[in-house]
Nucleic acid binder design. Structure first.
Lengths: 352, 352
DNA sequence: TTGAAAGCGCTAACAC
DNA sequence: GTGTTAGCGCTTTCAA
């Protein structure tokens, strides 16, 4: 009994198989399988007998065996290529995940969250995705040369990316993005309409398309702007504060700031106050995101560009699910979903 | 081509199998399998030939098939029974997850995070755990009658719980907990030693053992305390602020507060200031957790009970991995790991 | 060292 | 309706 053998020599609980249930119920495996999977086309009396047997034995289908034949997992991976210190401090992810979770639950699919902490993790996560543990993947926070989309494409794993990817690995790579450029134009246009003439911007990390696109929107409105008025930052509170201080040093006459995230805008507000500037009288400030927990509670409340983050998550999940569902047919072309750019709108509060 | 058939009619990329690699390399499936799994006992020349074939075909083993025979997944679930709004706002989880992630990476096991949002999710998560997708599970934030441990036990899934469970489902249910009671004694003892005589406490939700145990520690030091000095709260910032206001209303002469979390303590600090109390002169405050991002940055910096959260995560993972490893033998008794209570210590800063 | 062959537990034709 | 049967892709004896 000590050595492994072909016989079912298990350590803990002996998990019953379809076979065992079939025997106990006095039917064939096929019938048990039918009952377990909905029971369509099985006489009621038999069905009940089988159900009792399932109950009695505490039978739970072995997913590996099932997946092996059906090629479905009813699970979807969400991969976030960001240290968890950021994943867990930025409300952005939480909201996005909430949307995704809701949509997947409705489809009875399990959300599996994978965090890519450092470079070494890529291999393991890649193996996980390639190994067929999930039916599809939602990829987030991809930086410029992230290998994940290519990996997924290589093994044929359906994928939707959060945010516009830098380059399409795949002709029909699906993604969901906010209209970052349009949103930025809204913000900067508003400041210009207010009569501000020295409008600065605090950007996100420019190796992310969201940050780059927002800067492009800024430039759309101010094509001849002073480069001194552009401070590159990183979407965090600390970074935003630093950038604001820098701008103040470079151009003390700055009279407006478009910060590419609410977190950065809130830090800018604080730094401006510390430097004796009144908002919005001396300097008008506009953020981006409209995070409920931030924008409404700053002093003064933040004028910002609203994007519906939870809805983006929902959309991503829906896109993926539709692609998964649309597998079978030759009519793929008709049912193939397309990438989505969600709209933004300006929410005017007191800061600008 | 439109209908499903037994033939490999796939939609996207045709994923190569062992068979295909074997054919291309001109060897048997067994040999390919050996190479893929480390290549022990295969002649170098053959090994290389196989590796080239694997490379060329972009072969990735099908995990479902592998799991079906090995009964291993190299994946571990972390289940958090808490709405993500809390998971993502409380740094506690992030730290714990970091510890777990590190330990699992080292064992080349994939961390799979499952969030239980509402009651409906239990079924799906239960099915996921029972379905054999993971080798084991780490369970967090279990409330009083949480069905998860029983579910896991029922299907024989090795499990380690974060925090002491209310009742052991299983004789040798493993868990990792902080010495909550001892830590609370440290905190309250410190306040008493400072000469404080009207020491209040703000508790966590008393349906969680961590909160209940900390309250017990408080009572150990103050067995005859005034019940008016005890305010039940919920570990959040909002709750902590409310509780502090309440205490101030009930006992304006309060001269010390032991808050059962740093988040609550920081809110208490703010409320005390708003009520014109100086800390620590009028009211001394001690927290619990020693969250880097909170305790050191409050004004004044928080005296608190330190628990090494990341290490707890690490410990949980290690316990689980050891249990997983210790499966095979009859010597299970000797290698069986036992639950752990991690020590606490008082970190004295300016608030008490 | 290598290959042949027997399953792991399940689903899905297909036949009755 | 129900049972029989043939795999899904892999690992692992066992023999050569």
């Amino acid at each position: 009994m000590t050595e492994e053998s072909a016989q079912p020599e298990r350590i803990g609980v002996l998990r019953p198989t379809l076979e065992a249930v079939a025997e106990l119920a006095g039917v064939s495996r096929a019938t048990v399988s039918r009952v377990v999977n909905g029971g369509a086309g099985v006489r009621a009396s038999l069905r009940e007998r089988v159900q009792r047997a399932v109950e009695e034995l505490g039978y739970v289908p072995n997913q590996a065996a099932r997946t092996l034949v059906t090629r479905r997992n009813d699970a979807v991976a969400v991969v976030v290529a960001e240290p968890e210190s950021r994943v867990f401090s930025d409300p952005f992810f939480a909201q996005q995940l909430r949307g995704i979770g809701k949509e997947l639950s409705a489809a009875d699919s399990q959300l599996v969250l994978l965090l890519v902490e450092d470079t070494g993790d890529y291999q393991r996560v890649g193996r996980y995705l390639a190994g067929g543990h999930v039916d599809g993947a939602l990829l987030f926070s991809l930086h410029q040369d992230d290998p994940l989309p290519a990996m997924a494409h290589r093994v044929g794993l359906p994928t939707v990316i959060g945010g516009r990817p830098w380059a399409a690995t795949d002709r029909d790579q699906l993604y969901v993005d906010t209209d970052n450029r349009g949103g930025a134009r809204l913000a900067v246009g508003h400041l210009a309409a207010l009569g501000r003439r020295r409008i600065a911007t605090i950007t996100g990390p420019l190796d992310q398309t969201s940050a780059a696109d927002r800067l492009d929107g800024y430039r759309d409105i101010l094509p001849d702007g002073d480069p001194q008025l552009i401070a590159e930052s990183d979407f965090t509170q600390e970074g935003g504060g630093r950038a604001m201080a820098e701008l103040l040093a470079r151009r003390p006459d700055v009279d407006a700031v478009f910060a590419a995230s609410d977190l950065m805008a809130s830090a800018a507000l604080r730094v401006l106050r510390e430097h004796g500037r009144r908002v919005p009288e001396d300097v008008a400030v506009v953020g981006f995101d409209d995070l409920e927990s931030v924008a409404a509670w700053t002093d003064p409340p933040l004028t910002t560009v609203r994007q519906d983050i939870e809805d983006m998550g929902r959309l991503m999940a829906r896109l993926l699910l539709r692609r998964l569902a649309g597998n079978g047919g030759a009519d793929a072309a008709r049912t193939t979903p397309a990438s989505v750019i969600t709209p933004t709108r300006l929410v005017v509060r007191a800061s600008a």
